[in-house]
Amino acid sequence: MTAVLELRAARVRYGPLEALHGVDLVVAEDAVTVLLGRNGSGRTTTLRALAGTVRLSAGAVLWRGEDVTRLPAHARAARGLTLVPDREAVFGTLTVAENLRLAARHGDFAPALDAYQELRPLLPRAAGTLSGGEQRILAVARALLSPARVLLLDEPAQGMSPTLAARTYDLLAALPATVVLAEQELPASLRTAPRPVLVHELRRGAVAFSGEAGEVR
């Protein structure tokens, strides 16, 4: 598999605390990569390091073999990378329709409504008035509309019902893009995804396991 993104000996510090301790990680093209770990394990920091929203204190980030460690987040986004963080992933003062229109090519957000019919009655509402689960649906719907070739999503189904969560992972697995997810547990539907699902488990800021979804208990 071709590597799209890589971390090499990546270290991240938040003040006196080191969140990543020399992480080596490869994100394969057109696969689903899952970063597993409990809160505080470093999975969210790893996602942000790939996106460029946190800076490395040591190590490197590679984009198709090119060192982009010093490239800011907006420049990585311009190359085709989209990050959906676990919080504040939508524009709260804009309506649901406006959020979708901004994310869509040529303003056509019909595919998002096909994926999530639940958004139709919410279109005129301000996104900031939605429940947590509804905001996650909107955030993922925006990502589905994105032309990005690499999508990084932090717990995309948080707050969703089990049925909606399963649909969300099926949608992400079917995308013609490289997908990276940060999760506390491996979503069950990804064990039978139609393309490779690679798993990296983080513990205390280091990679403790790397393998395929079928190897995760």
Rank of each mutant, 00 (worst) to 15 (best):
T45F: 06
T45S: 10
T45M: 07
T45W: 11
T46S: 06
T46F: 02
T46N: 04
T46Y: 03
T46V: 02
T46G: 01
T46A: 13
T46R: 00
L47A: 01
L47G: 01
L47P: 06
R48N: 00
R48C: 00
R48Y: 00
R48W: 00
A49E: 01
A49W: 00
A49S: 12
A49D: 07
A49Q: 01
L50M: 03
A51M: 08
G52I: 04
G52V: 08
G52C: 13
V54L: 04
V54A: 01
V54G: 04
R55M: 09
R55N: 06
R55E: 14
R55K: 09
R55D: 15
L56N: 04
L56T: 05
S57Q: 05
S57Y: 11
S57N: 06
A58K: 01
A58L: 09
G59K: 06
G59M: 12
G59Y: 11
A60N: 05
A60R: 07
A60M: 03
V61G: 04
V61Y: 02
V61D: 09
V61I: 12
V61P: 02
V61Q: 06
L62C: 12
L62T: 08
L62G: 10
L62V: 12
L62I: 10
L62Q: 12
L62W: 14
L62H: 14
W63D: 11
W63V: 07
W63K: 09
W63G: 06
W63Y: 10
R64I: 14
R64H: 15
R64V: 11
G65V: 13
G65Q: 09
G65Y: 05
E66I: 02
E66G: 01
E66D: 10
E66S: 07
D67P: 07
D67V: 14
D67Q: 11
D67T: 04
D67W: 05
D67Y: 10
D67M: 06
V68M: 05
V68I: 08
V68G: 01
V68N: 00
T69Y: 00
T69V: 02
T69C: 01
R70N: 05
R70V: 10
R70C: 07
L71K: 01
L71T: 13
L71E: 13
L71A: 07
L71V: 14
L71Y: 04
P72W: 04
P72E: 02
P72F: 04
P72R: 06
A73Y: 15
A73L: 12
A73S: 15
H74R: 08
H74M: 07
H74I: 02
H74D: 13
H74Y: 15
A75G: 10
A75W: 12
A75Q: 15
A75P: 12
A75V: 13
R76S: 09
R76H: 14
R76Q: 14
R76K: 15
R76I: 14
R76C: 13
A77W: 08
A77Y: 12
A77S: 14
A77M: 10
A77H: 07
A77P: 09
